[in-house]
Structures are given as structure tokens and as C-alpha cells.
Design a protein around this nucleic acid. Structure first.
Lengths: 299, 299
DNA sequence: TAAAAATACTCCATAGGTATTTTAT
DNA sequence: ATAAAATACCTATGGAGTATTTTTA
């Protein structure tokens, strides 16, 4: 059986006249009769009652005509859906982000913009440590990652830089530097630092440590914190100070003061990572929206 | 587009390998490639990502494969439904009956038996005066009618006799004949009769009137009742007596006594009427069931 | 290099056309 | 007598085959 049989039979069922149906189908009457007969032979069911002058549908014919109409409608719908999917207007995008990225307004505004532009696309969100994100992306369990470079292994991944965000010092409320409008990096040389394990967040740690070394000292690490948010909690508990991306300001547990750094600006980079061979329009549209959100923010 | 394209594409989508898919489809690989390409050309959408060594589905391909699977399942279902309908196992039968037939246990047991045998068939029931039933049947608004002959116009209709039911006298509770085990027709010559208008129920009226005339008197009609059930109500109110089918015994409003008639038996006929050119298996099955119910009752 | 898809052709099955007959009213 | 479906026969499109080349890992 082919769709041709359904199209032809539906025309006959609607016209109840082979000659008119054939005209409507732009074929001649004999092949139409032929096709309907072969359909009936395949089903082993009479669809048309030819015993009367005006042909009529049998019970089976009525049932089959209704089904044929549904099937043909579903075929039209399948075409529509495939075209939508090709344009990236339907489908799914699996987005991952590191904890620190989740505090950045750019990430949330990119998500908002994408949902508005592509309401039919399902967006799933997952938080992972930076090191895991690269693996999830390469192995196809995630499509896009909001990350801070460098990724542990960038093979097979593209990184689009979205934002260079200043780093600021985070100090407890009562700290000697808490009232300052800005602070030079070397003024922190005597402080106890709270940092995250290098294994899980190499980019940010390397940036901070090498900057301190440029300023002439090696930061004394009093405590490692597994999460950026727990870093802030430990700072609030006066266990030390830290250096964090400016967007962390939105996090205010107890009394933590964020003091801009003076001197040579230090930045945390934020961007979107995705597979170099990514071809999904949904995913490419998502990255496009993220870049656009970034442009609006910059401009 | 033809179902062939869907079948072929689904095989490729499942195997992710043209050669294996072709083997599964019992065709060679080049025509399969050819058909998939022509499908993609018609949709103007890439369904398969051929840029890698192992081919992959595009987003659109995944969507289309899912739709293709649904469509093919629906085609299989359409075939199944058409075959069911041809056997008369699904569909609809519209049954009409006269008021007097509705009191007959044969009618209700035929309906019960049919519903048990063909649970998927929708049965609609309508009550109409005998004269209307014939028209409804001939014009195709009903499929089967439980009627008492003669139909006003039987052209185009077949009548299957199901039962010959004795007629009995219906008298008020206090009537002189109420205690009798049986009564001869001529004993009713002095009574006032309650009959139904001949226009709406010719069969029964003619039977009764001609029987009375054979017994040597013309029944004196005191009252016409539009319904058989109102006839019984009028008898209960002592406005007269009547002669009704024995199955009316199930109707007992107030005190009405049904007395068998002695002498030459008088019968009301009950049967099923349907179009002579009826070809619906559903309807033919229904009539078959009615005859079977009748046989069980008789045997 | 090996495995798989694409290309180039050949062939033939069958969808579709034309002419005509049969059927039902 | 007429309208419509069925039959008979023919044509040619395109689906499928074989052989080969190209591509990619």
C-alpha cells in the first residue's frame, strides 16, 4: 500500500464517482479504478459498493476513508514538523553551566531571550563542575555549556567568549578593607585566602594565583571550598577573604563586602562551549541568541 | 511522497546504515540512497547528516522518523479497522421499534445478545409509530425496525417474521370477565372498545376488527388511544376493554386483567424489517442475532 | 585500507493513458 | 439513451538492479 492509494480512495469516497474523482486527481478514470481495486485486493475488503448505479461506500469503506483522511493529515503535519525542526524552531537544547556562570546575569538573560524567540524548544538545564562540562559536551549529553575557560580539554569543542568580567575582592563585613572603594592586589598579601580546589575549577584559580604572583606574593590558602557560593559563606564567617567574579555581588549571605581591585584589571572570562561539529539548528540558534544577548548588554 | 519513503527512511533511521537498511528492506543500497535523497528533496530538509563516517539523523530527521513510525502504525491500524468493519465487528446499527414491540421480551433479548456478541458496535435505539418506521428505513435513517406487519408500504423492505404472539383481552379489575380463565371473542360484542387510530397502527387494528367481524359483531369503539400503553391506562380507568398482544402483560398500571382468548387463536405478528438491498455486515449480523434469539426462545 | 555512500548506467514493472465495452437506470 | 465503471491494450516513468567510483576514518 502507498499513500497514492489513500489519496485516490479518499477522492473517490468524497466524490462517490470515479470519473469526477479521477478528474480531481488529474488522472484518467481507468487507472483510478485499477488502483482502488488493487487497494481492495490488498486489504481483502470491499471498500466500495458497486452494485448500485450511484456507487456507495461499504461500512469498511467509511471506516477506511476516515482513517485515510487522518493519515494524510498526519503526513502533512510530519512535513511541517520536519521543516520546523530544520529551522530550529522545535526540538530540545540541553544547557550546562558551572556554578559561577549561574550567577552571571548574561546567562539568565540569554536563556530568557531564547525561550521568548523559540517557545517550542524544550530547554533543559544542568549544573556541573567545569571539568565535567567538557566531557558531557564532547560525549553528547549536553549541547551548550556556559563555562569559564580554559576548559580542561578543548579538543572537539568550540568556545565563544561572551564576557570579560572584572574580579573583585570579597571580604568579611568587619574587615580592615571593608570600607575601601578599591584595593590593590598586593595589599592582600598578608591575608588568608579561601579558594576552590584547582582540580575542579582550574581557570579561575590559575588566574588569581598567577596575578598574586605578579603582584609579588603567593596567596596563603587557609581553606578550600567546593563551591563558589560556599566560598562566600566562609568569607562571611570571617575565615578568610577571596577573589571572585563581580557578578557574585548578587550573593549576600550575612555581611560580605565586595571591593573592586585597582591596578592592572583582572578578569574572569565567561563563554559558551559547544561541539565543533554541532549541526543542530536548535543549538546553533541558542548560541546565536546568547551572542545577541551579550551584544545587547555590551551596546 | 509515498509510504515507501517513510518505510525506507525509518529503516535507515533505525539502522543508521544504508547498506544494512537496504538489506533489511530486501532492496539494494543505491535505490535506497536514491529514495531517501528524493524524500529530502521533496521536504527541502536534510534528514540525514552524511558529513560523518557513521551517518547520523539531523534534528529534523529525528522528528520525521518519529512521525513516520506513527504514520506507519496508523496505516496498520487502518487496515485492521477496515477488516473489522467488513466483518461487522465495528460500526453502528440504528434500530427502530414500535411502541408495542418495545414490550416484547424477544426484542430486548435480541438487543442483549447482539451487544454481547458485538461489543464494539454502537447500537442506537429509537421509537417511532409503525407508519414512520417504514419511511425511516427506506430513507436510510434507520437500519432495522422491530415492527408488526403489515407495513404501510413494503416496497424496498424485507420483513423477517420473528414471533406470532397471541392476543389477549385486557379488562378492568372489577369487570365481569376479570375472573375468567379465558373468554370467547363473541362474549365481547357488547363491550366498549379502546383502540388506537388505524392511521398509525393499521396491522393490529385490522386484525382485531376483522376477527370481531368473523365472530359476528362490529366492535363499538368508545375511545381512541394514541399509544398502546395509554390504551392500558384507559382500560385501568374502566373506560372500556381492549385486545392487545400478550406481551403487554408486563404493563400493570393499577388493576388490569389480561384474559386469554378462546376459540380460533388470534395473533399479533412481530418481526424485523430492513432494506432489501442492505449490505452492511453490521446490520446483517444484527438481524442474524435477532433470528437466533428468536430460535433460542422457540426451541 | 576498508567500509560505506554516491554515481552511472541499465532494465522492467507498473502507474497511467487511449479506446472500447459493459452495466445500470 | 446515457452516464459511469470495467476491460483491453499500450506507453513510458521511475523504482530497482549491477558495476564502479568517491569518501572518510
Amino acid at each position: 500500500m502507498e499513500l497514492r492509494h489513500l489519496r485516490y480512495f479518499l477522492a473517490v469516497a468524497e466524490e462517490l464517482n470515479f470519473t469526477r474523482a479521477a478528474r480531481r486527481l488529474n488522472i484518467s478514470q481507468p487507472p483510478l479504478t485499477q488502483q482502488i481495486r488493487s487497494l481492495e485486493a490488498e486489504l481483502a475488503v470491499a471498500l466500495i459498493d458497486r452494485s448500485t448505479y450511484r456507487i456507495a461506500l461499504t461500512d469498511a469503506g467509511r471506516v477506511f476513508a476516515a482513517e485515510a483522511a487522518r493519515i494524510l493529515a498526519q503526513v502533512r503535519n510530519a512535513v511541517r514538523l520536519a521543516r520546523s525542526a530544520a529551522k530550529g524552531a522545535i526540538g530540545r537544547v540541553r544547557v550546562g553551566f558551572t556554578e559561577s556562570a549561574s550567577f552571571n546575569p548574561l546567562v539568565t538573560s540569554a536563556l530568557r531571550a531564547f525561550r521568548a524567540a523559540y517557545p517550542e524548544v524544550e530547554v533543559s538545564l544542568e549544573e556541573h563542575p567545569s571539568t565535567e562540562l567538557a566531557m558531557e559536551l564532547r560525549e553528547g549529553r549536553l549541547d551548550v555549556g556556559f563555562v569559564r575557560p580554559p576548559l580542561r580539554e578543548e579538543r572537539g569543542l568550540t568556545f565563544d567568549l561572551l564576557e570579560k568580567e572584572p574580579l573583585v575582592a570579597a571580604v568579611p563585613g568587619g574587615h580592615r578593607l571593608a570600607r575601601r572603594r578599591s584595593v590593590a592586589l598586593k595589599e592582600l598579601s598578608g591575608e588568608t585566602f579561601i579558594l576552590y580546589p584547582r582540580a575542579v575549577r582550574p581557570g579561575l584559580v590559575d588566574e588569581v594565583v598567577s596575578a598574586c604572583e605578579s603582584a609579588g606574593f603567593t596567596p596563603r590558602v587557609g581553606q578550600h571550598a567546593p563551591q563558589l557560593s560556599s566560598t562566600i559563606n566562609l568569607v562571611a564567617a570571617s575565615l578568610g577573604i577571596s577573589i571572585v567574579p563581580a557578578s557574585m555581588r548578587s550573593l549576600q549571605p550575612g555581611t560580605v563586602v565586595y571591593v573592586p581591585l585597582s591596578g592592572k584589571p583582572l578578569h574572569a572570562l565567561l563563554g559558551a562551549a559547544y561541539r565543533v561539529d554541532e549541526r543542530s539548528s536548535v543549538v546553533l540558534n541558542f548560541i546565536e541568541q546568547a551572542r545577541a544577548a551579550c551584544g545587547r548588554r555590551a551596546g
